[in-house]
Design a protein around this nucleic acid. Sequence first.
DNA 1: TTGAAACGGAACGAAGTGTTCCGTTCCGTA
DNA 2: TACGGAACGGAACACTTCGTTCCGTTTCAA
Lengths: 198, 198
Amino acid sequence: MRTREAARNSEAILAAAREVFLADARAPISAVAERAGVGISALYRRYPGKEDLLRTLCHDGLRRFIAEAEQAAAEPDDWAAFEAFLRGVVEADVHSLTVHLAGTFTPTAEMNTDAVRASELGDALFDRARGRMRAGVVPADVTMLLEMCAAVRVPGDPARTTELRRRYVTFLLDGLRAGGELPGPPPAEAEVNWRWRA
Amino acid sequence: MRTREAARNSEAILAAAREVFLADARAPISAVAERAGVGISALYRRYPGKEDLLRTLCHDGLRRFIAEAEQAAAEPDDWAAFEAFLRGVVEADVHSLTVHLAGTFTPTAEMNTDAVRASELGDALFDRARGRMRAGVVPADVTMLLEMCAAVRVPGDPARTTELRRRYVTFLLDGLRAGGELPGPPPAEAEVNWRWRA
DNA sequence: TTGAAACGGAACGAAGTGTTCCGTTCCGTA
DNA sequence: TACGGAACGGAACACTTCGTTCCGTTTCAA
């Protein structure tokens, strides 16, 4: 057998899938194979179909989100914990991985469980930091701000993309502390989670 | 002839195209016809092809951008002018109209001229307000922030979308004044204008 | 040496989409 | 009122794209 090559390809395929589908969630599967330097069959050997690959990618992102939240929660200072959480999530591009891919597949029950847990962890970190935030901000605002951050991209240059995102997370974190109450009704959870509709 | 119906349809088609293509720049032309309550031929009677419709839409957005900038420039107070400009551009969803559609068609020479003029007007407004901004912010940052704002959307509810965007423009405007220098090299013009590549 | 595991990529079929075309409907004019 | 052309709706056509299958080839542990 070709066990060495197989292991390398499994990694390459996941990495390629992340790059390709983050750039365009509707990209064809052949683009993933090409980017991975692999034939299409190498892909179908590992995943029954496109949807399963997308699901795996998204679920990985969700787990990464949870991991970031748990790690940040260990930080004793409330604001530092919140800041570490936001920066970690943006750094790992978790938001694109989860939110932009949701809707391209039918989620598993386990994913829903994890999604609930993720949101609970995020809310907990938010609550700890709430005292240092401007009035009227709600957790859904943070989701929205993360989504805005994910809109920052320099195509074909992932390194520069995260560099710029770091710039704007700083901007957003500053904005969460300064200023008075924001206008208009804050976003409802449903207005922010619409991609997870079954 | 059916001149009355024709006039109504011309309007309906443009409005439908805006709605449909803002929701998804890759939407099929049949979706536009459907949304407008019109047959496909009504569309092809007015535009030689899909690309021309997209181009018209985008150019309209560009002109709207210029109009907003010119109108805002009349405001005597420097910061008020800048704020009116940003709010106007976001309100009209000009950014989606221009940036999200760029690349789906080959631009005309006139569009390039207008794009240059638009950027000059924006820079002028920025320069007037620069004194009241945090250190190190550049015009390309504003482009990026507008792009982030355009990422805010509540699908199927345009009214709520602009309401939320108003919330976050306020947030961004506050952020532009508060805080110190932002980390990392600021975005280069090329990193922000990549969609206009010929 | 051998055969099972893994591979590359052509081929296939279904789905989607831009454009054309034609028969039909409407209405200003005579 | 009757006519004729402008405008219409949408089926049909001709691609293109993309997910998936299939098969001949390559590699390597036994």
